[in-house]
Amino acid sequence: MRLSERIIEKMLVICAAIALLGIAVIAVFITKEGWPIISKIGIKAFFLGKDWTPTKGVYGIFPMIIGSIYVTIGALAIGVPIGISCAIYLAEIASPKVSAIIKPGIELLAGIPSVIYGLYGMTVIVPIIRDLFGNQGFSVLAGSIVLGIMILPTIINISKDSIEAVPKEYKEGSLALGSSHWQAIIKVILPSARSGIISSIILGMARAVGETMAVIMITGNSTMIPESILSPVRTLTGNIGIEMGYASGEHQKALFATGIVLFIFIMCLNLLAKLIPKKAGA
């Protein structure tokens, strides 16, 4: 091989490694900034502390952990049934014409920026909740609804792909035994697509946990542990997003520390999605 070709090949390797390098540098920098404060106030006090009062130097992120969990569960409760139904409909039932209309719609839904979702949540969904329940509207419920919509494209696309990947022989086998199409879907096709569907849910979950701007705009961001789905709530991402603008010193480090928790959360979810066996029925 000529020298120039070899040099170029080396450069290609370096480019390929940049993503890997990126993730490493991100991990290092977030940890470098955030870890000292965790070790200073103690892991237990940081994770389980119920009080977040930066002015007094008290940093407990338990309410935000609970907040993220609540809002994510709410988002899944809305996004999973709608998303999986939509995936089944598109993969199994819809005529090509209907698919051709709905598919670009889902791509658009995925392409709409978070701030637009936030704006819509703030000006339409929050007031509706306020009118219905007489609370202030900014709430776990509002966050769940908007995040539930935002994770739809993730759930629909991945589930749909895995349903379409089920060998058509399974479906034919079921129909030939005199099952209805619905029975074939529920008893043979969905169980075979199980791993892909579970991945879609986990990745949807990661998307919900990681969303920031839309959540800040609609959840009220109170640092109290929410009492009900109508209470305001602050998530881990919200905690960082709101206070980064003005935090300094130790306070700012505490936000990086929140980032560490978020980072670990997300990495675990992504790893989990990767570990699900890919083979149908195996």
Partner: peptide
Amino acid sequence: IRFGTEALAGIPSIIYGL
């Protein structure tokens, strides 16, 4: 390398911000 690329894709934007 592949894992790194996939992991990078999953990181929330606020972490990128930080």
